[in-house]
């Protein structure tokens, strides 16, 4: 019995057990590899997506728990003003090194800005603490979030 979820505004079907984490449904069943696998136990943040706008670790979110909620992934975050501004700020400040964690970083940052349009450094640190970057791009991530705030408030 296929499970139906709404991903980036489109209804998608997956014939999987309800306990299957959303991460593997996205990556392996729906063919959306932008959401990354890093640890599988919600310790690294690489798999972060939004469920009704709230950041969620898709690696421990059973697909059966989604129901009618709206799932947003990195592939569609440019449709939100915060997501678009963050992507541009990421490029302007050359945040990225290897890039593997950056889908999750941007998703966490976009959720932060949606909830807290003008975050302080402390807000940023708190919101981003669960996103690990092995290359160590944290300082530039913080600067890029501030830059995105500036760009969106100027707009």
């Amino acid at each position: 019995m296929a499970i139906t979820i709404k991903v980036n505004g489109t209804a998608r079907h997956a014939d999987v057990d309800a306990d299957t984490p959303l991460l593997w449904v996205l990556r392996d069943v729906l063919g959306m590899p932008g959401t990354k696998f890093g640890c599988g136990i919600a310790l690294c943040g690489a798999c972060t997506v939004h469920v009704d706008g709230v950041p969620r670790r898709s690696c421990i979110t059973p697909v059966g728990s989604i129901g009618y909620s709206a799932v947003t992934t990195i592939e569609a975050i440019d449709k939100t003003p915060q997501g678009k501004a963050l992507q541009q700020a990421w490029l302007d400040l050359e945040v990225v090194q290897c890039g593997y964690c950056q889908s999750g970083q941007i998703m966490s940052a976009a959720a932060l800005l949606a909830a807290t349009p003008k975050p302080t450094d402390a807000d940023i640190d708190a919101a981003m603490a669960g996103n690990v970057c092995r290359c160590g791009t944290y300082q530039r991530i913080r600067a890029a979030i501030h830059r995105a705030v500036k760009e969106t408030s100027n707009a």
Binding site: M32, E75, D78
Partner: peptide, 11 residues
Amino acid sequence: KRLDTPDKVNG
């Protein structure tokens, strides 16, 4: 500007 990064911010 890095050539590999635009695709690393959009998945």
